[in-house]
Design a protein around this nucleic acid. Sequence first.
DNA 1: ATCTAAGCGAGACGGTACGTCACGTCTTGGG
DNA 2: CCCAAGACGTGACGTACCGTCTCGCTTAGAT
Lengths: 200, 200, 200, 200
Amino acid sequence: MIERVKPEKPKRGRPRSETARRAILAAASSLLEEGGISAVTMEAVAAKAKVGKPTIYRSWPNARALAMAALMAADTSATSVRQTDDPLADLERQLLKVVTKFATKHGGQVRLMLAAAEQDSEIAKGFRNQVILKSRMEGREILLHAIETGDIRTDADIEIALDMIYGPLFYRVLIGHLPLDEGFAKALLTNVLAGLAPIS
Amino acid sequence: MIERVKPEKPKRGRPRSETARRAILAAASSLLEEGGISAVTMEAVAAKAKVGKPTIYRSWPNARALAMAALMAADTSATSVRQTDDPLADLERQLLKVVTKFATKHGGQVRLMLAAAEQDSEIAKGFRNQVILKSRMEGREILLHAIETGDIRTDADIEIALDMIYGPLFYRVLIGHLPLDEGFAKALLTNVLAGLAPIS
Amino acid sequence: MIERVKPEKPKRGRPRSETARRAILAAASSLLEEGGISAVTMEAVAAKAKVGKPTIYRSWPNARALAMAALMAADTSATSVRQTDDPLADLERQLLKVVTKFATKHGGQVRLMLAAAEQDSEIAKGFRNQVILKSRMEGREILLHAIETGDIRTDADIEIALDMIYGPLFYRVLIGHLPLDEGFAKALLTNVLAGLAPIS
Amino acid sequence: MIERVKPEKPKRGRPRSETARRAILAAASSLLEEGGISAVTMEAVAAKAKVGKPTIYRSWPNARALAMAALMAADTSATSVRQTDDPLADLERQLLKVVTKFATKHGGQVRLMLAAAEQDSEIAKGFRNQVILKSRMEGREILLHAIETGDIRTDADIEIALDMIYGPLFYRVLIGHLPLDEGFAKALLTNVLAGLAPIS
DNA sequence: ATCTAAGCGAGACGGTACGTCACGTCTTGGG
DNA sequence: CCCAAGACGTGACGTACCGTCTCGCTTAGAT
């Protein structure tokens, strides 16, 4: 998890205010949208959320962590797709959803966020797992299903296939050398699947 | 370019000190290595390089730009490979060089740098072009050569192929979910080339 | 009084814990000794006394008041002296007792405390009456007795005499420009009494 | 002195701004007058003087020191009196000036300041020397002159006499048990000088 | 050979945000 | 109804850097 945890079980004293928590995340999200990660300062969040700074520090250790938490909280929009009997169609639908999500300004925020973290911090790991790798994990499920249904080769290297699908996608999000659009997603998928097709 | 330029031709007055310039980049590089991008503060660089802050500002507009310049200056190690009659072998050699380069701590610094930039700033573009896209551009040369030699299909979508090669690579550098090694590079290349082979 | 009073008579509910009261004063005293008045924070006292902050606030309105109360509680050592037939000797004995008391670190604490009060607050008045003026009041009793016994002039201005005795004493405690010792006390008394002697 | 000093002689770099210095002291003085010592916060001073906080910290180590400096700066009104051939009259004039000065709100500020200091800090010493002991030192000059002119005994203990004059004065300023006025000053002086008169 | 514009180091400037501390109040569950 | 615990909003603390601005001193091309 991103937020701090209190290890002891017997919860004594006044409990943390859920209202404050929500106000903080909302303020952080709003600032993130307006001015990017550098606008998510503790001072600004505290002022906007009408909350004391220590209240924020009680739950998040610093501004970057809070910004990530806000981004993740705003990211509840699941990318998950319903699995059908046609895994290849499932995969395409999922990929298009991911592309749609990152093609917007959300993509820019993700880029800003990625390197801001302390590198290998617990916070950063959580962020990567939830925001970056969630789609990859879903993809793995679909590919495994495709092996069962016989839509792709049984000896395919799933991990490399996944990197070949989601890697180029984030490559374009991060570097921006070429646009991230539906056409790209489809062409990418076609190329990857060509190498995974069962020997007819 | 990263460094500021003085447009006027008649260079009067004392010229800028090359010694100072080198000392600044060296100090910035050293700080970058020790404490990451957040350690590259103007104050620290000025102190370490025994240089006045305005001297730094005369050449770089802010700390991020300086950090990038330092990283790029340290990055003189060309990835370029000699082109032979066997473009596919050329490509593999180039890819292995890139992997070697980014598998070290250099990769971590690149990650840190990527999102620190102002996004679309001149500085960030230069960085992306030189550090991230240089390898991709070299790859394009090789693939175009391979089309001429008939090693890959003439109707192959080069751009997507390039993203499929270099995208997964940076994906692993940035996210770190799986290791970036020689085996991965070879398997990746094999898979990509499988889809590009001419119809025999 | 320093502590708050609860006006209503019908004492309902759980009575205040005398244990807590003592623990609080003890903790405050200890902190006062260790780090001066600025160390007597509500947080520290509550933590040290294993007491909730509201419990302290129930009895003292703020940290200064508590510090003063602690200092006064520790100050139970009466300065009072037995009155004999020789008032001048009584006065000297009393003065020496006062000097002894304030020459120790207690003097420093008193100095710290004096100006910390809100000026004219009830708390500060009580402190001044008990800690600073108690000795002066005792001195007045002795001087009045001395008038009766004929040891000093009947038309002497007692108040000014008292200020001339106890004023210099606190002057040295507070400013510390010269030491506060037995010799000083005796010389002071000699000089003052010289002006109060009956016309022989 | 109260303000920090830079020991090295060759003053390099931009010199400290005298304008800023004056603005800070003026703001501090103003706040001191309005709300007492607790109103002299670094934040408020910085805001009022339109100055950055670090600029204040460059010259004064904390808020108390600044408040003292402000009080001392406002205290340029010399108490010194012209010395004449009649030292006793000089002394009375000086004492009345001191009484006038401390009978006003200035007295209250001095009280507040006295104990606020860290005790034995360099700052506090300077404050005591300039604000509290300056009058005492002037008094010493006058008394020494009086010995020369034969107005007081040659074997008088000057230090104790001084404490008997200025001690009661500050006693009343600090404790406030009795008013500090002209009548008190005259009566006090009369009593003290009675014991210092040369044996006629 | 002098003038003079520009760069040099140093460091103070007005700011912004940091992360911490203590304040005095409020809100829990337990006795 | 008091107790301990502890979260709350507030606000000042002292620090770190920011990017700009003098300082007095080179330095070297133009006069």
